[in-house]
Nucleic acid binder design. Structure first.
Length: 484
RNA sequence: GGCGCGGUAGCCAAGUGGUAAGGCAGAGGUCUGCAAAACCUUUAUUCGUGAGUUCGAUUCUCACCCGCGCCUCCA
């Protein structure tokens, strides 16, 4: 186990890097705002989830014990709207996309959270919490709905840096629908409208507002005060601001110590939207032949607090980088080594390890961590070229690569298997030749080469290439092949 | 307008008050019958613009320009 290292993470609340200090030794409780399951998650959603995944894996590798919660919102305006248009019940609609989400998680290799929760499973808890807010004077009922009284919570606006007064004047008023005391007040419970799902409550039938679910579920599972809360940058206001208000107004305690927000992903420099035709889901990309490891690499390669401009060209670059990492792993494994002294290599390995870990510890600088790994890769290749790597060096390098991969999850990833997450939904380019047919053609080619009939040999190779088979002649006379 | 993120080589991108990591692509080379793959080498007198602080700034300060996000339910 490595020596303890101080980990710094940017806290949106303080707008500064702060050392990570768990409430309990080496125990971290973390909540992540997940997806509203009205549709497939898109690449932007998964940027957030990959960042959280890598953070969690890193923290675990540093010896922390995590308890994690991820929520799926399965009841809100959009859910109702989409379900109606699809001619399904909200419940059925949610079920379809929750399953799709599970497939996406499997495809990308995202760790399952300890608790994957859905809003509608916690309605009674939400009602109970709202009752407490009402009893404490922080919320009021009005025409079957219940609203949070923002003026009763002086700290409101601290997370997003919005002055209370401004919220008052700047807010939009949807007076046609709801009766609020003040425009900035937000809804905790929505009165039932015809055609919408509803649950009984002290205020009559209705359904929860969006924000309350995260407060209630997180506190129920992680306690009233926990360590980390993550989500997309767009959730800072109003979602997380409201979560803080709802929670702390009742408990009087710090709801969350450390707020993490993942910046937006853009596509070709623009916000993703269906009308622009730049809206990607994971299954879209998989169907185009892109791999889980490449997608993960690309999403992880830009530190989470920077906007990430997603392009297909960038994805191709990422896939190439992954290939190089894997090739190095293979080369290491295949090399025949003896013991050898190599002070320089030893130093390079140690430097890479320090830099890798130090980069991640400093606000999850994934770009720096990757650079450390590629430095290691070059040093290793050079040593192999010069026949100057010892068994001990290889062991040390493999250990570091294993640690890298336990966090980034891209080397030992069977991309073809990952594709199976989507079952027969996808129709990727199928191999046009069976393995036996490939071997037969390769045998004919080998014979042709022996006879120095290179015209025929090349013709056979071209034939295989057309079928998506890459042929590689190695130095020792062996022939390797793989499917593109 | 308010709050926030960012502008570093063809593309992606790290970084520090002391003179520019890494990846991809490109070029050259090793290997090869030729390829492919792999490996090695190489690619920014310069970090949006202007001014200031400093012995010295890409890194600090100020102004300006540009891109993006949030500002009541979008990750």
């Amino acid at each position: 186990m490595p020596l303890p290292i101080e980990i710094h993470l940017y806290n949106t609340l303080s707008r500064a890097l702060e050392p990570l200090r768990p409430a309990e030794d080496a125990r971290l409780r973390m909540y992540t705002c997940g997806l509203t399951v009205y549709d497939y998650g898109h690449i932007g959603n998964y940027r957030t989830f990959v960042a959280v995944d890598i953070l969690q894996r890193f923290l675990e590798s540093e010896g922390y014990h995590l308890e994690t919660v991820l929520n799926l919102t399965d009841i809100d305006d959009k859910m109702i709207d989409r379900a109606q248009r699809a001619g399904r019940s909200v419940r059925e609609h949610a079920e379809i996309y929750a399953r799709a989400f599970a497939q996406d998680m499997e495809f990308l290799g995202l760790r399952r959270p300890d608790h994957l929760v859905r809003a509608t499973d916690f309605i009674p808890d939400m009602i109970a919490w709202i009752e407490r807010l009402v009893a404490a004077g922080h919320a009021y009922a009005s025409q079957g709905s219940v609203y949070f009284r923002v003026s009763s919570f002086p700290a409101y606006g601290r997370l997003s840096g919005k002055p209370l007064e401004e919220l008052q004047s700047g807010a939009r008023v949807d007076s046609d629908q709801y009766e609020k005391e003040q425009a900035r007040d937000f809804v905790l419970w929505k009165a039932h409208k015809p055609g919408e799902p509803a649950w009984p409550s002290p205020w009559g039938p209705g359904r929860p507002g969006w924000h309350i679910e995260c407060s209630v579920m997180s506190m129920k599972l992680l306690g009233e005060s926990f360590d980390l809360h993550a989500g997309g940058a767009d959730l800072i206001f109003p979602h997380h601001e409201n979560e803080i208000a709802q929670s702390e107004a009742v408990t009087g305690r710090t709801f969350v110590r450390h707020w993490l927000h993942v910046e937006f992903l853009l596509v070709n420099g623009e916000k993703m939207s269906k009308s622009l035709g730049n809206y990607y889901t994971l299954r879209d990309l998989a169907a185009q032949g892109f791999h889980a490891s490449g997608i993960r690499y690309l999403l992880a390669s830009v530190p989470y607090r920077r906007q990430l401009n997603f392009t297909l060209d960038g994805l191709r670059q990422a896939e190439a980088a992954v290939e190089r990492l894997r090739a190095f792993g293979d080369r290491l494994r295949r090399a025949t080594l003896e013991n050898a002294d190599n002070v320089e290599l030893q130093a390079a390995i140690e430097a890479a390890g320090l830099r890798f870990r130090g980069s991640l510890a400093e606000n999850l600088n994934t770009a720096g961590a990757l650079a450390a790994i590629f430095d290691l890769l070059r040093a290793g290749n050079q040593a192999l070229d010069q026949n100057a790597m010892g068994l001990g060096h290889r062991e040390a390098i493999e250990r570091l690569l294993a640690r890298f991969d336990s966090i980034f999850g891209i080397i030992e990833t069977d991309d073809r298997r990952r594709m199976e997450a989507y079952g027969n939904e996808l129709h990727p380019v199928e191999a046009t030749l069976a393995d036996e047919a490939v071997e037969q053609l390769l045998a004919r080619r080998a014979a042709a080469r022996l006879e120095r009939n290179y015209a025929l040999a090349d013709q056979l190779r071209t034939q295989l290439e057309t079928a998506g088979i890459v042929v590689e002649d190695t130095r020792d006379g062996q022939v390797r092949w793989r499917r593109k």
